[in-house]
Simulated assay, not measured.
Amino acid sequence: MLIQPVKDMLMRNANHYLIPADIVANVQADNNLYHAFLVLTKIKYSRIPVLDNAGHFKGLISLPMITEQMLGFDQLNVDVLMEKRVSDVMETAVKTVPNVDDVEATLHMMINDPFVPVVSDDGMFLGIVTRREYMKSFNFLTHEIGKQYDMIEKDFSTNEKPK
């Protein structure tokens, strides 16, 4: 559990955490893999959200997921890009958060992932929270916490506060 001063300082920048859905690159579940391949190649991101036609979050798609479909025994099968849909290969077991206020859960998810999808209770894709934005806040935190809170150095070898 985060101590309150840390949580308070991280939440000061909460309005910067969310990258809104309308500016996040995405594809739709019914798009063919060719379209997803082009989008991922052009934007140079490793993974992007997959949405349905109404804007509900359905999963994530990556270039490795697409190229895996093209691999044959002795050659690449690019025809599969037109035949298969994003929904055929996307990752659906994706952890999401309902808002940017759940700092601790978001931090745990970002250990392995560069971003976490923010999805409302009714499944609408709201945007993403990126590790980059959190790291900016941690940088701020490490430089400012001693200026804004009285910090008492603790001797960890004895588990006691200095006198």
Rank of each mutant, 00 (worst) to 15 (best):
N77C: 02
T130E: 05
R12P: 10
V78N: 11
G146F: 00
L71P: 01
N15Y: 14
V86W: 00
N32V: 02
S62A: 07
V94K: 02
Q4T: 01
T41H: 13
T92L: 13
V39K: 13
D155E: 05
A21L: 09
M151N: 07
L10M: 12
K161P: 08
A105C: 05
K58G: 06
I111S: 03
N99A: 06
L107Q: 07
S157E: 07
H143R: 07
L126A: 03
I48K: 04
I145M: 03
E153S: 01
R132H: 09
P20H: 14
P114G: 09
K58N: 07
P49A: 13
S46Y: 03
D74K: 13
R131L: 10
L71C: 00
F156N: 15
I145N: 02
H16P: 01
M1F: 13
I152P: 00
G146E: 00
T142I: 12
I19N: 10
R12V: 05
Q75N: 15
A29N: 03
N99E: 05
L51K: 06
M1G: 10
D30G: 03
R85K: 02
L51Y: 11
K154P: 04
K154H: 09
Y45V: 11
N53T: 03
K95T: 08
M9Q: 08
M124T: 04
V50I: 13
P162A: 01
D88Y: 04
Q148E: 08
I152M: 02
T41I: 12
I43F: 13
D101H: 13
I145F: 03
V116G: 11
L107E: 05
V129H: 03
T92P: 08
M135W: 12
Q148S: 09
L71G: 04
V103E: 05
F140G: 01
A29S: 11
R47E: 11
H108Q: 14
H143I: 01
A105L: 12
K58L: 01
A14T: 07
N159C: 06
I145E: 05
M135A: 15
V97F: 01
N26L: 05
Y45P: 03
F125K: 04
F37C: 07
D113H: 09
Q148T: 09
N77M: 08
A36C: 10
H35W: 06
L18H: 03
P162C: 02
V89L: 12
A93S: 10
P20M: 12
V50S: 09
N26K: 10
V39T: 08
E68Y: 06
G123L: 05
T96R: 15
H143A: 03
L141P: 06
D30H: 05
N32R: 08
N99M: 08
A105W: 04
N112L: 13
L81F: 00
P114I: 11
L71I: 14
D122W: 15
P64A: 05
F37T: 00
M9F: 00
T96H: 10
P117V: 01
P117C: 06
V100K: 01
R132G: 11
M65Q: 11
V118K: 09
S87L: 10
Q28F: 13
E104P: 08
S137W: 12
K136A: 11
T158W: 10
K42F: 00
V94F: 10
